[in-house]
Design a protein around this nucleic acid. Structure first.
Lengths: 105, 105
DNA sequence: GAAATGTGCAACTAATTGGTTGCATGTCAA
DNA sequence: TTGACATGCAACCAATTAGTTGCACATTTC
C-alpha cells in the first residue's frame, strides 16, 4: 500500500500512467518517446510502478510490454471514504467537475 | 491536483488523515499526540494537507480545528479509471479485499 | 556470427524532503 | 496585565529522490 502512494507521488510516473491509460501495452522504448529524459530514468520509474502493482508487464521477445492495473487506485479511496459515504462524495465530485467544465473547461 | 499526490506521498500525512477519518475536527495539539515528533513537524504536514484541500480548517479561539475533505481523493481514481470501467474495477477490488480478509485478515 | 535493437544494472550528483531547534505571536484566565 | 496555553515562522541537517553517464546482456536480422 505504501508503495502505491510512493509510486503516484512523482509527476513523471503519473504521466506514464496517463500514457498507458490512453494506450495500453506499450514497450519501454515506446514509453520513452516524448518523456524528455533518458531511457534509464524512465525504466527506474516503471520499476516503482511495477512494485506498486500499478503496472503489470508481459515479455514479448526482447520487448517488455506495460499494462495499467487500476485496482490499487480504488483501494486508495477505500482507505478514507466509508462504504456508505462513497455515493455522496461521488455526487459532490461530479458536481464539482461539472462546474469546472462550464467555467474554465 | 499535483499537490494532492504530494500530500498523500508521506506516511506521516496519511496517518494524520487516518486520525481525522476516525475522529474529525481535531486541533493541532490533539493531532500531535501519538505522532512521535515535534508539533512543528506535524504543523508542516498539515500545511501540505491544507494546500491539497484534503484538510479544511476552522478557527475556534486560539485553536485550529482540522476536518477531512474526501473529494480530492475521489478525483484521483477518476484520472485513470473511466466512468464505465468503475463498476468492474470496484467488483474486483471488493473481491480482492474479501479474499484477503478470509486468508490473513 | 556480426550488427542493430531493446533492455538491465550501478555509480554519481543536484535538488527535495522530513525532521529538528529556537523564537515570536495570539488568546484565555485570574 | 501577567502567566499559561495553542499556534506560527525560519534556519538548519540528514536522508531520500530524480535524473545523469557508462557499460553489460539478450534478441532479432542479415
Amino acid at each position: 500500500m505504501d508503495t502505491v502512494f510512493k509510486a503516484l507521488s512523482g509527476a513523471t510516473r503519473r504521466q506514464l500512467l496517463d500514457r498507458l491509460h490512453s494506450s495500453n501495452g506499450l514497450s519501454l522504448g515506446e514509453l520513452c518517446a516524448e518523456m524528455g529524459m533518458t531511457r534509464q530514468a524512465v525504466a527506474k520509474h516503471l520499476t516503482l510502478l511495477e512494485a506498486a502493482n500499478l503496472v503489470v508487464v508481459r515479455r514479448r521477445g526482447r520487448e517488455k510490454l506495460h499494462y495499467l492495473n487500476p485496482v490499487p487506485i480504488t483501494e486508495i479511496a477505500d482507505r478514507w471514504i466509508g462504504k456508505y459515504e462513497r455515493h455522496k462524495v461521488r455526487v459532490l465530485a461530479d458536481l464539482k467537475r461539472g462546474l469546472e467544465e462550464r467555467s474554465d473547461g
